[in-house]
């Protein structure tokens, strides 16, 4: 099997200011499927085409932002191995018991030098996508509820020490660097896009003075047409839109950035090129960051650099 180690982004836990308002937004407007609630009051969602029990979890809090972001790894042997590799690298790890999150096995948790809490896990219950595994239809009615992305695709996180984070992902977790934007002096990376498979990115980071900040969680759409439809649904529901619909130069993905009712940015994303681990990294100079962000408009929207939760 070619894809081993870390398989994919598996879950994000995000803080919201008003739980009921957030549930209405994520369920009825974004069109995620609610799959459970736990004793802590957290609400669990998945995208309609995802097979695991949950991928996006919200928790009511007095501040917005990201609690943690988790990756699914191949199996428990891989989980043990990656945990000891992280420790050998000098990072402290913690085991969160199975069941602390609904339908989810033991998690290995660690904090990056950027201040973000990351998790690895090997088990989450498969609840399916509502389509049989034998003679499956290409989609179900769930595809028509709201924006209805097909999966949690990636996250972009803002914090300090991106160079150290880069080393942890490439030297310990088996990711490779797909694209990067240089700092204005050209001596370091201002932002990095990392992949653990053949997606154009599974996680990205940008250098920022404040630790642990969320720029956006991204949801995958099936087509550019579905991204435009997402924009229509955002306007019908007076969702606060940041940028787009447009196309990124970085990744070549089509995009809309918008905010949930608590000010957590999210993205509806489609496309992107397909890298392999042996491909050379693509580099953007800082003065071309505008095209990297918004290729048609060639504009470095100020909110992209400054607005986070």
């Amino acid at each position: 099997m070619a894809l081993t180690g870390v398989l994919r982004p598996g879950h994000a836990q995000v803080r919201v200011l008003d739980l009921n308002e957030a549930v209405r937004f994520y369920r009825d407007v974004l069109g995620l499927v609610e799959t459970g609630r736990d004793a802590q009051g957290r609400v669990y969602f998945k995208c309609w085409d995802e097979r695991d029990h949950n991928s996006y979890v919200i928790r009511e809090s007095d501040r917005a932002g990201l609690d943690f972001f988790g990756f699914r790894v191949l199996d428990t042997a891989t989980l043990d191995k990656l945990e000891s590799d992280l420790q050998a690298y000098g990072l402290a790890t913690e085991r969160i018991p199975a069941g602390e999150m609904l339908a989810t096995g033991e998690r290995v948790r660690f904090t990056l030098p950027s201040g973000h809490v990351m998790e690895l896990y090997a088990e989450k219950d498969k609840v399916g996508n509502g389509i049989p595994l034998v003679n499956p239809a290409p989609w179900s009615k769930a595809r028509d509820n709201g924006i209805a992305p097909i999966r949690l695709d990636h996250a972009l996180l803002y914090g300090p020490n991106v160079a150290q984070v880069h080393k942890i992902f490439t030297e310990v977790l088996g990711f490779y660097l797909v694209e990067r934007v240089l700092t204005p002096d050209g001596n370091a990376n201002a932002a990095i896009w990392l992949s653990c498979g053949q997606k154009v990115h599974d996680i990205a980071f940008a250098e920022y003075p404040e630790p642990g900040k969320l720029h956006h969680c991204s949801f995958l759409m099936e087509s550019w047409d579905q991204v435009l439809r997402a924009g229509d649904i955002m306007s019908m529901n007076q969702v606060a839109v940041d940028i787009g619909p447009t196309r990124h130069g970085v990744t070549r993905g089509c995009t809309i950035y918008a905010w949930d009712p608590s000010g957590n940015r999210f993205e509806t994303f489609f496309g992107g090129h397909l890298p392999y681990p042996d491909y050379e990294t693509m580099t953007w100079t800082f003065d071309n960051f505008g095209q990297g962000l918004d290729y048609p408009q060639r504009k470095l929207h100020e909110t992209f650099l400054t607005v986070v939760s």
């Binding site: 501040r63 917005a64 905010w259 000010g263 909110t303 400054t306």
Partner: peptide
């Protein structure tokens, strides 16, 4: 300054000098 419009990012902070108003929940950060 216009940011998230949801009380989460903090860029739109103002000081109300005079007038009455109601508020909705906003981030303690």
């Amino acid at each position: 300054p216009v940011g998230c419009r949801g009380g989460g990012c903090g860029v739109c902070k103002v000081e109300v000098l005079a007038g009455d108003f109601e508020t909705r929940v906003m981030s303690r950060d």
